[in-house]
Design a binder for these strands. Sequence first.
DNA 1: GCGTGGCGGTGCGGTAGCGAACATACAGGC
DNA 2: GCCTGTATGTTCGCTACCGCACCGCCACGC
Lengths: 240, 240
Amino acid sequence: MSKSPAAIPNIILAALPAREFQKLRPALSEVTLNFADVLYEFGEPIADVYFPSACLVSLLTRADGHVALEVGMVGREGIVGIPLALGMQRSPVKALVQGGGPALRMKKTKFLAALEGSVGLKRGIYAYIYALMGQISQTAVCNRFHLVEARLARWLLMTRDRVERAEFRMTHEFLSHMLGVRREGVSEAASAFQHQHLIEYNRGKIRILDHRGLEAAACSCYHRSPVDKDAIKPWRSGPH
Amino acid sequence: MSKSPAAIPNIILAALPAREFQKLRPALSEVTLNFADVLYEFGEPIADVYFPSACLVSLLTRADGHVALEVGMVGREGIVGIPLALGMQRSPVKALVQGGGPALRMKKTKFLAALEGSVGLKRGIYAYIYALMGQISQTAVCNRFHLVEARLARWLLMTRDRVERAEFRMTHEFLSHMLGVRREGVSEAASAFQHQHLIEYNRGKIRILDHRGLEAAACSCYHRSPVDKDAIKPWRSGPH
DNA sequence: GCGTGGCGGTGCGGTAGCGAACATACAGGC
DNA sequence: GCCTGTATGTTCGCTACCGCACCGCCACGC
């Protein structure tokens, strides 16, 4: 299951100068994250950070009376364990693996040392924190204003972009918690998409059939939370 | 209008060791932020950062078809201009002054230099970024699940805590943009509160009469976005 | 004093999503 | 083959909120 060391699908790591990456390499271990793994619980200490390669981790906030609400999504464009980079020990959110796949793991102490020793890593991670704050804000807007159908389409597309597969495990029930709506609402929206041949699903498996069609059904928020790191440049280097 | 230099109502600055603060002092200028000032526009470069003393700055995200949506609120517990501390040049959000009052301003270049020269400042700001991410997430949950009345109560209380006054300028119209609802919805909720003698208002001025009563009307989110910096300790040092 | 614009009160029909209840159907263990 | 648990389909009344329209009222400028 392990990728060749030469291929570094995680964007933050791939952006490092070769020499800096070589210094980090011994501290990284290749692991496979499995569907439904909980990397951190609400308010619990963070033992390791993860650089996803081709998997998806959801960041969830607690909401009384509800199971949870997804506020962010981390794939190969990011890192899980941001609080450590901000000098904090505990995760304010629950980190749940939604799409299994390979990731690189680093122990907390080694990560803190690596941050001090690698300017490139620090820059990459801070830039990602910036992007993630934007993503969380965008998700807040989306959850407030957009219809369930549009949000579902956005979620499916964002997931696909991060796991880099068109099919993934996901029940309507679970999705309803991510989107903060009822299970029935998800079923109705998903059913509509299936009739339009945009997706197909069955007992906990969903497959995207028509990527373009889904994009048309999604709200504009989708285009504002890209995986591609270059896409955040408009905020950095110009109003395009 | 300017406070005595000895009193540093901004919590991040007040937490600095005296020697570190003295080093920063020359780079800080005392300013008064006025109601409706726009500190940063969406995606625009950041020229200065601000340490609010007793004023309130709203962080707004764009939402097509709507004026804006508030995702965060900065008072004396924080700093406006976080992207600079993350190595980014532009603000992803609009920063709007909701409550006028004193603040300390620092030029971008001096701030970047200060960050390098003051470990305490860096720690304080990163801890604040952590807290702000929590606040944004909490606001996302709140906007999704809670009724307009509860959200209005929360907003009023959070504002009061930050401007440290019971009365402030604010029209229903403006509030509706902050909360992401219609103006009429705000009017109805505010009217209900006025009948209960929790607040009183008139033509763009709102005064809180019964703080406790408002707390009872607010959702639990209020207690999860405190001004008091110590309050974020549960995430840092233990599950209480 | 008079107009004008900003602020807030109120009522209307319409609807997305809620909560609950119930039906169907497939999968996997035994 | 049967049983049980999990996943999904469907319906129903309800309500918070929307979008719209219109009103009265006060403050301020001329």
